[in-house]
Amino acid sequence: MKKDAFDDYFYLGLITKTHGYDGKVVAFIDADNPGAYENMEMVFLNIRGSLVPYFIEERSIKNNRLIIRFQDVNTEADASALVKKELYLPLSVLPKLTGNKFYYHEVKGFTVVDEQFGRVGEIEEILDYPAQAVMQVFHEGKEVLIPVNDDVILQLDREKKTIRIKAPEGLLDLYLNP
């Protein structure tokens, strides 16, 4: 299996427009806590499918918007060329989460165990739908979609790579007993 160049990086946001005439850009930061990224010194931009490092000279944050001046980007034309480019950071800079909180990429391959049903299967993917993120799990070849929320997830064990759940009543029957 070929490793994707983006596998070791996470999507941080998108440059949405220029800011002024001196090379600054505005980036939407797609994070629960955008302030955690206010002091970064470099980001990677997706330029035609390759991640290219850009060093940050100045930054300020307002809500989920980061106003950035990159090194060697000094004109409105330079900044315009960066609009609609995606920003990425290495996975290694993500703050560590504890307890039942997790990053979606972190739990791929974890085993899901329901307190009533038992072993459901391994997480293939977390599907992030607009209304609800769900764990995509396969049990004996059948797809099972389990909501990602605090009422369902009882315990996350990073050492054992398991997630213990209490599936909503009838959910597993819906998928496994048609």
Results as ranks from 00 to 15, higher is better:
M1A: 09
K2C: 02
K2W: 02
K3Y: 05
D4R: 02
F6E: 03
F10C: 05
F10E: 08
L14V: 06
L14Q: 13
K17V: 02
K17C: 01
H19R: 04
H19S: 13
D22T: 12
V25E: 01
V25D: 01
V26E: 05
A27E: 02
A27C: 06
A27G: 03
I29K: 02
D30V: 12
A31I: 00
D32W: 07
D32Q: 14
N33P: 07
N33C: 08
G35N: 08
G35Y: 06
G35K: 11
G35L: 08
Y37C: 01
Y37G: 03
E41F: 09
V43I: 15
F44W: 13
L45A: 10
L45W: 08
I47N: 10
I47W: 08
I47D: 12
I47T: 13
R48L: 13
S50Y: 10
L51F: 08
V52L: 10
P53R: 14
Y54H: 14
F55C: 00
I56N: 02
E57A: 06
E57M: 06
E57D: 11
E57F: 03
E58C: 10
R59H: 07
S60G: 06
I61D: 00
I61R: 07
R65A: 12
F70C: 04
N74R: 03
N74L: 11
T75M: 04
E76A: 06
E76V: 09
E76Y: 10
A77H: 07
D78W: 05
S80E: 13
S80V: 01
S80M: 11
A81F: 03
L82F: 05
V83L: 07
K84N: 14
K85P: 01
E86M: 11
L87N: 05
L87P: 03
P90K: 12
P90L: 14
S92A: 12
S92M: 12
S92R: 14
P95K: 11
T98A: 12
T98H: 15
G99D: 03
K101A: 15
Y103K: 09
V107L: 05
F110S: 05
F110L: 07
V112Q: 04
V112S: 01
V113Y: 04
Q116T: 14
F117A: 03
F117G: 03
V120P: 07
G121S: 11
E122P: 07
E122Q: 14
I123L: 05
I126F: 02
D128N: 14
Y129H: 15
P130N: 11
Q132G: 05
A133S: 15
V134A: 12
M135V: 10
Q136H: 15
F138Q: 12
H139Y: 06
E140I: 04
G141Y: 08
G141H: 06
K142P: 01
V144G: 09
V144T: 05
L145M: 14
L145P: 01
I146C: 03
V148I: 13
V148N: 04
V148K: 09
V148L: 13
D150K: 15
D151C: 09
V152M: 07
I153F: 11
I153M: 10
I153C: 09
D157E: 02
R158I: 04
R164M: 13
R164E: 06
I165N: 02
K166S: 15
G170N: 14
G170E: 09
G170T: 08
L171E: 12
L172W: 03
D173F: 06
L176F: 09
L176C: 01
L176S: 11
P178R: 12
